[in-house]
């Protein structure tokens, strides 16, 4: 049974993630109205927000430790928050600041926090093989850490995913694959790109357990993840977990969603795992004041992170030339004197 403390912790993570996405949406749209220019405003480029996905990140990461590895896809914020990624430095990265997790080099799709073994990537399903590698390292070094690869339901048609399932299975690796099924891959509804509505069935082909749960009930996600993570930690091999989530926003910010029936979006907005978890908390005799406190604390943390991030300095143009290698003395950056002259504003 899930403890009240754990419920509260999940609730706080989920509220933090939701508020974070709502605030980032506002910040992102700064300077992009009325004309939406993707390169304008304090956060340029694409931005994929995860409102409606929170229970998946929170329910799974509740079972993880800092030494467990998580790889996330292009929609990473809720997972990063639940994994304990430094929120201030993550936010500074999203705002392209010098003190960001990657000194402004990565942006929102490429967040790396080695302190808690978190990474994400913008290429569909490409986090799966590195998660298998983290599992392999754990096995070789004989630790009990595990690896979790998060991906979308659109990503499970990718070779990188299927090959990873097979490799994790045959090597008996401590890996959990978590598929967040929000029914849409940008504009493509699930039925258009697969005949298998239940993605967890793909586990059958690799002789590993596969389970599908509904994120409306965060506790159900928590329970399913407990089994899968426990199995990995006990050296009993990989599992596949598919979580039905909902996309409350566009695929990326500014997505007109002309392809999406109004009713589909309305349904996604109605089914809110955060409200349901709040009811669960009350069922566990958590009073309104405590719930309000948790929510306020989450909101404050988000505001603080955003305020801090916006105060941070931008990187210098010349910083672009650093970090290609950790050991540039033997690499091209040092032996190529004209490099700084080629594209520069110098």
């Amino acid at each position: 049974m899930v403890s009240v403390n754990e419920l509260q912790s999940m609730y706080e993570n989920m509220v933090t993630a939701r508020h974070y996405e709502e605030r980032l949406q506002e910040e992102y749209l700064e300077g992009k109205q009325p004309a939406f220019d993707i390169s304008a405003g304090p956060i340029p480029g694409e931005l994929h927000l995860a409102a409606g996905h929170e229970a998946s990140g929170a329910g799974v990461c509740q079972h993880l430790r800092d030494d467990d590895t998580v790889t996330a896809p292009h929609r990473p914020h809720h997972i990063a928050i639940a994994k304990g990624v430094d929120l201030k430095r993550m936010t500074a990265e999203i705002f392209g600041r010098e003190t960001g997790l990657s000194k402004g080099k990565g942006g929102h799709m490429h967040l790396f926090d080695p302190e808690v073994n978190f990474a994400c990537s913008g290429i569909i399903a490409e986090g799966c093989p590195p998660a298998v590698g983290a599992g392999l390292a754990a096995k070789k070094r004989n630790t009990d850490s595990v690896a979790v690869a998060f991906l979308g339901e659109g990503a499970i048609d990718q070779g990188a995913f299927l090959e990873s399932l097979n490799m994790a299975s045959v090597q008996n690796l401590p890996v959990v694959f978590v598929v967040e099924d929000n029914d849409w891959a940008i504009s493509m509804p699930k039925h258009r790109i697969t005949d298998v509505a239940n993605g967890a069935r793909r586990a059958d082909g690799f002789d590993m357990p596969g389970e599908r749960v509904d994120a409306d009930d965060a506790v159900a996600v928590y329970e399913a993840a407990r089994a899968a993570v426990g199995r990995a930690r006990d050296r009993n091999g990989p599992s596949l977990l598919e979580v039905q989530v909902h996309r409350r926003m566009g695929h990326f910010m500014g997505d007109p969603e002309g392809y999406r029936p109004d009713e589909d979006k309305a349904a996604a907005e109605r089914r809110d795992s955060i409200e349901r978890l709040e009811a669960d908390l009350r069922g566990h005799d958590v009073d309104d004041e405590t719930i309000d406190d948790l929510r306020d604390r989450a909101h404050e943390r988000v505001e603080e992170a955003i305020e801090w991030a916006k105060d941070q300095p931008e990187p210098e143009p010349a910083d672009a030339y650093e970090d290609v290698f950790v050991n540039p003395a033997s690499g091209v950056t040092d032996s190529e004197p004209s490099v700084a002259e080629t594209g520069g504003d110098d």
Binding site: G45, G100, K105, V324, G344
Partner: peptide, 11 residues
């Protein structure tokens, strides 16, 4: 120059 494309505007 021979670096991946960085995210932040100045870079």
């Amino acid at each position: 120059p021979d670096v991946p494309i960085p995210y932040a505007r100045p870079m």
